[in-house]
Design a protein around this nucleic acid. Structure first.
Length: 495
RNA sequence: GGCGCUAUGGUGCAACGGUUAGCACGCGGCCCUUUCAAGGCUGAAAUACGGGUUCGAUUCCCGUUAGCGCUACCA
């Protein structure tokens, strides 16, 4: 295979949690871009922070990606197995003078803008915050003499490696979403490349790997935008040209703060469990921060790939709208040919233990008919095993609200009994025959058809909310309908 | 605090100097109807604020405000 000039992109999660919605969207954009361009998607696990890494979470992330239908072409590669590369790069930077050894005490992140400050008396009078300590961007160690360094080394002071950021000038890079960017070097601190424990920081490892893996486009969350100049600096110091960056806007919760556990489910796994279809989730996610132009919304994956482009990625953060996600799910549950949803419903029935030995498993044609009848009012896959349970098993209950609402008339038990007899006597079992028989019984009893129809629905499927009665009867079959009616009679006693 | 990014109905997106500012979700109403959905029709709802530039600004520039991001030996 000849080297190609096709784009190479990567999705690089760190195993500090499950695959969350934001990461999934970033992965999706990378994938759509790669597929659209005929390029390559690489998966890289950024596990250089031994403190908070949970190796066991990697599988969950891979599973999440697979569920979403995002396939990578190379990897997963683990940064923890490439540590020599980063150290070598740090040495090269040290040798060229682009970096320097730092002997400062490591400062742990304290959240916010810190200044430990310490004991604050309660509401001192003219408090006024006091003078904020201006953080210096240049590390004092950058100007240490050789003698000083030797002394520190001799004394065994731990050494980290920092990048020697130019004091003057500006650094620029190209962002496919935000346009050409430029920041003053004076704003950039002498950031750490290699920690005193010998492990690389994100800034170093990400650049070394992206160079080594020949990544052409870095598509990632906009939270990395501010740090990108540092990486551009490293690229050049390493003698490489920075790639094209593409920062995609963040996904926020309903309160417009960054999406987090506080907002409820944020892992893609939880959406899979909740009964969303992967393609619906993909369609929804794709439209968060990207638009195909015009007013198109319902886009099958092939259309997503066909129309995706970085230039139409938005620059504004988007709020995750659960209601719209559900709407997309109903679309995918209801619009495609039944065959499309059958496998998902089958999996759902198995999950609920309703598949083995069921008519659904024995009779594919019947299964398809049943699903076709049920799906117009489903929103999540779970609907097939909750309110539609009675279609797949005789083991179902009568919903309390349904009984209260439709089993009020005291003539019902005898009517249901009569209906069972009338239906049982039917020679042909079809919609119109069931319809005529039912209305006949209601008329003979002097009751409005609706009363009997609604009561019957509860008797045969246990729910007030279900598909049209006579179609339901046809699908369920005469034997079952008659048996269920007779079984229900004793229960249909007001009070 | 510093630096940066962003700003169209409640939400997601259109309109990339000229439209009665469009579509979708959600919400209300009507139709359909055997429950509930779906579907059809329909209603309310937005260019954050203030200055410019221009014959003309949602669109370009500046300021204000707000939100978010970064400012870690986390990624």
């Amino acid at each position: 295979m000849p080297p190609s000039d096709k784009p190479r992109v990567r999705f690089a999660p760190s195993p500090t949690g499950y695959l969350h919605v934001g990461g999934a969207r970033t992965a999706l954009f990378n994938w759509l871009f790669a597929r659209h361009e005929g390029g390559t998607l690489l998966l890289r696990i950024e596990d250089t922070d031994i403190e908070r890494n949970r190796p066991e979470l990697v599988d969950g992330i891979l599973e999440g990606l697979k569920w979403l239908g995002i396939e990578w072409d190379e990897g997963p590669l683990f940064q923890s197995q490439r540590l020599d590369l980063y150290r070598a790069a740090a040495e090269r930077l040290l040798a060229s003078g682009a970096a320097f050894g730092c002997y400062c005490k490591a400062a742990a992140y304290s959240g916010g803008d810190a200044t430990p400050g310490g004991d604050e008396d309660q509401e001192g009078e003219g408090d006024d915050e006091g003078p904020k300590v201006q953080k210096s961007v240049a590390c004092p160690c950058r100007d240490l003499s050789d003698a000083d360094r030797a002394a520190k080394e001799k004394a065994g002071v731990p050494r980290a490696v920092r990048f020697r950021v130019p004091r003057a000038g500006a650094t620029q890079f190209e962002d496919a979403v935000f346009g050409p960017r430029e920041v003053q070097n004076a704003e950039i601190e002498d950031f750490v490349l290699l920690r005193s424990n010998g492990l690389p920081t994100y800034q170093l490892s990400v650049v070394v790997d992206d160079i080594d893996m020949r990544i052409t486009h870095i598509i990632r969350g906009a939270d990395h935008l501010s740090n990108t100049p540092k990486q551009a600096l490293i690229y050049r110091a390493l003698g490489a040209a920075p790639p094209i960056f593409a920062h995609v806007p963040l996904i926020l919760g309903p309160d417009r703060t960054r999406l987090s556990k506080r907002h409820g489910a944020t892992s893609v796994g939880s959406y899979a469990e909740e009964g969303f279809l992967p393609e619906a989730f993909r369609n929804f996610l794709a439209l968060l921060g990207w638009s195909p132009g015009e007013d198109a919304e319902f886009l099958r994956t092939s259309e997503l790939i066909e129309r995706f482009s970085l230039s139409s990625v938005s620059r504004t953060n988007a709020v995750f709208d659960r209601a719209k996600l559900e709407w997309f799910n109903t679309q995918y549950l209801q619009k495609p040919p039944v065959e499309y949803v059958l496998p998902y419903v089958e999996a759902e029935l198995k999950r609920a233990g309703l598949w083995e030995g069921s008519q659904a498993s024995r009779d594919p044609a019947w299964f398809a008919r049943a699903v076709e009848l049920i799906r117009p009012r489903t929103r999540l896959l779970g609907d097939f095993t909750t309110w539609a349970r009675a279609f797949f098993t005789d083991d179902f209950d009568y919903e309390a609200e349904a009984r209260d609402k439709f089993w009020k008339d005291e003539r019902l038990p005898s009517m249901l009994e009569k209906l069972a007899g009338a239906l049982d006597a039917l020679a042909d079992w079809n919609h119109d025959a069931c319809d005529a028989a039912s209305r006949g019984v209601a008329a003979a009893e002097g009751v409005k058809a609706g009363v009997l129809i609604n009561a019957t629905r509860v008797a045969i499927v246990g729910r007030a909310v279900a598909p049209p009665l006579f179609e339901t009867m046809v699908v369920l079959g005469k034997e079952r309908v008659v048996a269920r009616l007779r079984r229900a009679v004793p229960s249909v006693r007001p009070n």
